[in-house]
Simulated scan of single mutants.
Amino acid sequence: MAAPSNRQNQRPFHTKRHRALFLDTAPGTLSVWRCTGRYNLPFVKIGRKVRYRRTDLVAWLEKRTRETGATA
């Protein structure tokens, strides 16, 4: 599967496939995280479609950045 192009990265909303590539995880993993509430990963519902903002994912990753091995 190819990485999203620069043009795709400039769009405000992306599919779970594109965001899964960004997070280096499987698209289904994003669905599990969203449905189980395992992680507070922001998303937008548009009808039946689920979209993720790149800016939200970057902020989410920043909050998860750790200086040590502590997980708390």
Rank of each mutant, 00 (worst) to 15 (best):
Y39D: 15
R19G: 00
H18C: 11
R64A: 12
P12C: 05
W60Q: 11
N6D: 13
Q10M: 12
V58D: 13
F22M: 07
P4S: 06
I46Y: 03
T65M: 07
T29W: 08
M1W: 04
N40Q: 12
V50L: 08
I46P: 00
T36H: 10
H14F: 01
Q10S: 06
T15E: 02
K16R: 09
R7N: 09
T25W: 01
A20P: 01
A2Y: 11
C35T: 11
V44S: 05
R51I: 00
G28Y: 12
T25Q: 12
A2Q: 08
T15N: 14
R66H: 08
R66V: 09
R38K: 12
T71K: 07
T25P: 02
V58R: 06
R48E: 13
S5W: 05
Q8P: 01
T68A: 02
F43H: 11
R38D: 14
R17S: 15
G37E: 08
M1P: 03
T55F: 01
E62N: 04
R64E: 13
R38G: 11
K45A: 13
K45R: 15
W33I: 01
A2C: 01
T36R: 14
A70K: 06
T65Y: 08
P42C: 10
P4V: 00
A26R: 14
A3N: 09
E67I: 04
T36D: 14
M1K: 07
T29G: 04
H18I: 04
I46R: 11
K16G: 01
A72M: 02
G47S: 04
L23Y: 00
L30I: 05
L61N: 07
R11K: 14
T68V: 02
P12I: 10
F43S: 15
G28F: 08
G69Y: 09
L41W: 02
A2E: 13
R64L: 13
T55W: 06
R66S: 04
W33A: 10
T25Y: 08
Q8H: 11
T68M: 06
K45G: 08
Q8C: 05
Q10H: 07
R19K: 03
R7A: 10
V50E: 12
C35V: 06
R34Y: 03
T25M: 12
G47D: 11
L61F: 02
A3S: 02
K16Y: 02
M1Q: 05
I46K: 06
V50Y: 11
L23H: 07
A59K: 12
R38C: 11
A26C: 13
R48D: 10
R19T: 15
I46E: 09
T55R: 07
R11F: 12
Q8V: 02
